[in-house]
Design a protein around this nucleic acid. Sequence first.
DNA 1: CATCGATGTTGAG
DNA 2: TCAACCTCGATGG
Length: 353
Amino acid sequence: MPEGHSVHRIARQFRLHFVGKRVSASSPQGRFAAGAAELDGHVVTDARAVGKQMFLEFDHERWLRVHLGMYGAWDFAGDITADATVLAANGRMGQTNQLGTPGQSGKPNQSGKPGQSGEPRSDGAPSLNAPVDAAGEDSLHSIGAPRVARLRMAEQEKLGPAADTFPPEPIGAVRVRLLTHDTVADLRGPTACEVLSPEEVQAVIGRLGPDPLVDPGKRGEDRVVAVVRRKPTPIGLLLMDQSVVSGIGNVYRAELLFRARLNPHTPGRDVPEETVRMLWRDWSKLLKLGVQQGQMMTMDGLGAKQKAAALAHRDDRHWVYHRAGLPCRVCGTPIAVEMAAGRKLYWCPKDQA
DNA sequence: CATCGATGTTGAG
DNA sequence: TCAACCTCGATGG
């Protein structure tokens, strides 16, 4: 589900709460047992996002590559103070915030290894479970009892049901669990999750187009211009091609094209160079904004009232995405939708003629 | 409660 | 071009 901004947010979360710490790695679900064993007991040394992919570096020349794909998500728990503003805006996920229900969700899925290996000492060590010092966190929990905060990060970020033990039981089928002395990250439903050598990581990144946050400035821009201006492929497809430019998904594609008032069917080679440069700069701007805000914001420059509506209601957030048949916000023409390479492409036939 | 569809990618045919 | 991957919120009965 996530487009580039979410992955950068997740990488930041790892930098804040995992880099520099030793982790015990496991695969409660079992499908990543071998990979987890390779990482177990090592220190996380870096976390980077490139487009929709995230790379976690460990202290023994091994990297974990993760692509969340369509339904992937990370569940963080423990000492994870995140942007409270975003959390408040998005509310809590799933169940109520009630006591008990550690297993919850009725899914006794995480069979296999119960207690799971690397509990740090514990036994008596209450560790940092109880957020005694986390004054900011208390304000997020209506109930007074000390709880272990939970945060789900995918395309959206939501507070989960607080747990009362650390580490909490995994929710659902967890491919990999990374546990430090005070934080834990559970990965569920990824398209890709594998351990790579530094060379292999370099090879993967080499196949990706520029990401504005990784290749800022003119270098990335020039690369995109060179590729786009050489291809007969419609610009609507090129923007989704991760080897052309990284991190753009179906929402950002539709919105970027509308903001440029560009017909999605225009062959790349026919898009004026200045327009390609504008697309890149606009993508850079929207990506930064998304990372900062924790959610997509493609209708910047609105009045305060409209802005509030856009933040509150999902359907009010975009110019054209998910608005098939609804009147264009600019000209009133019904927004068109068509299938392009298996994905829905939304655009205004008049403004983007 | 069953069904549908999705902010993505890969690989088979 | 399309199914598979594999999860969950939205929708309808």
